[in-house]
Every structure is written in structure tokens, then in C-alpha cells.
Amino acid sequence: MKNIIAFTGSTNPDSINEKLLIAAINKFPKGSVQLIQLTDHDVPIYSQKIEEGNGIPKAIKELFQLFTKADGFIIASPEHNGLLSSFLKNIIDWLSRIDQNFFGDKPVMLMSTSPGETGGSSHLQILKNLIPRWGGNLSSIYSLGDFNNKFDVDNLSISDKSEDLKLNEAVQAFV
């Protein structure tokens, strides 16, 4: 894969999920993964009334065009009360209004982390069942629990060797 798009579903400028995402990106050849900021795509909360009145926001159309050119996707999704973030869900809601199959039958790698032991894995189980609905081919899932003790924020890498090996395996399964 030459053109992989990576993003997080977080609005936190100091997101631990983005830090984990960068650690994963660093395992790919330089230039093969494009990190995009979904927060750059400012859109209203989806509503049928807004869509009827204003159409699909320009930012979503631009994001959809990026998706059509991608060979695959890496998503680092924070867990909010056992679910994906409302921010990420809103982006998905808008994208699906253009095409329910917005991942375009391309591979998807799901990731999550948290300070807790489960690393946000609860919502990844939900997302893994939804990815095919949106046209994604789920290739791998990786969850890092105990972020504060297993991640080196200065080097943007996993400090726990066994966890780093699991991330390598998830990356290989995705590729």
C-alpha cells in the first residue's frame, strides 16, 4: 500500500490516541502514511434538516475525496463511555450520507489506548462490527492498555517490548 490515511477520532490536542497512532505510522516506510487531522474538517452535528437545507458540508466532500484516493486506513479511536467519540461518529454520519461504503472496500486497522487496563478495547469490538457496513475490510485491531506506563511520550513509541511486538503484528496484518 502506497497511500494510507491515518487519523484519530479525538478532539484533544494532546491526544494519547494520536501519540499511539504516530508510533504505528513510524513502523511504515516514510511517505506511505498521511496523518490527517479530522478537526480540520469543521462540520455541524449531523441532522437531516441541516443536510436538506445546506447539503453536504464542503469539508466532508473534501474528506471523502481523500478517502477515495487512499489505499487503506488506520484509525486510532478514543473510547468515550464504552463507545467511539461523538466527534468521530459525526464525521462517519456525514461521510455515509455521500456513500454508505465510504471506506471503498479497502483495508482498515483499528487502534485505541487509554490509561486503564483495557486500552479502550470495548468500543473496538463495536467498531469491528461496523467497519464492514461502511465498506471497510478490517485487517487488524490493536489496543494498548496502561498507556502511562507502557508508552514513551518523549520518543512517541511503546516502551513495553511485548506490546510493541503486538503492534508490529497488527501492522503486518494490515499490510
Rank of each mutant, 00 (worst) to 15 (best):
K49E: 09
S10E: 02
T113G: 09
E18V: 07
Q65Y: 02
I56P: 07
N137R: 11
D93H: 09
S47A: 07
L84E: 01
S77T: 14
D93N: 14
E62S: 12
G31R: 12
S32T: 09
R97F: 12
S77W: 06
I25C: 08
Q125V: 04
E18L: 07
S96H: 15
D42T: 14
P44A: 03
I60P: 09
E117T: 11
L84W: 11
K19C: 03
W134P: 01
G120N: 09
W94C: 01
A70F: 01
S85P: 11
F67M: 14
V43F: 03
E62F: 03
E79D: 01
G136K: 02
P132Q: 01
L110H: 13
E62N: 14
K49V: 10
D14I: 02
D105V: 01
N81E: 04
L83Y: 13
A76N: 13
K30W: 02
R97I: 12
D14A: 09
H123D: 01
R133G: 08
H80R: 13
L124H: 12
D105P: 02
N101K: 15
F67L: 12
D40Q: 14
P44I: 00
G120W: 03
E117F: 08
G31C: 04
Q34C: 09
L83N: 13
P13H: 13
L138C: 02
D40Y: 10
F102Y: 13
Y46E: 06
L110R: 10
V108L: 01
L124E: 08
I92F: 10
S15Y: 11
L95V: 00
I91K: 13
F102D: 03
G135I: 09
Q65K: 15
A76I: 06
S122Q: 14
N129I: 03
T39W: 01
T118G: 00
K106R: 15
F73T: 08
I16P: 01
Q100E: 03
P29E: 14
L35W: 12
D71N: 06
I50P: 10
E79Y: 10
L63C: 06
P115D: 11
E117I: 11
A76G: 15
L110M: 05
N26R: 14
G53C: 05
G120V: 13
D40G: 09
P132M: 08
I74Y: 06
S139T: 05
T113A: 07
K27E: 09
D42K: 15
K89S: 04
K69E: 14
L124A: 06
N54A: 02
L95A: 07
T113W: 07
P13G: 13
K69G: 06
S32C: 00
D71M: 05
G104N: 14
P107H: 05
F28C: 07
Q48I: 07
I75Y: 04
I74T: 02
M111N: 05
S121F: 08
W134Y: 15
L138P: 00
V43I: 11
E117S: 04
Q34S: 10
F102C: 08
A70D: 00
I5V: 12
H80G: 00
I131F: 00
I50R: 08
F102T: 09
I141E: 15
Y142W: 07
S47W: 08
N90A: 01
I16H: 00
N101H: 07
K89G: 03
A76K: 02
A59I: 02
I50D: 08
K69S: 10
I98C: 01
P132E: 00
P13S: 14
G116A: 14
P57A: 00
N129Y: 06
D71G: 06
K89L: 06
K89E: 08
Y142F: 15
A24M: 04
F73R: 04
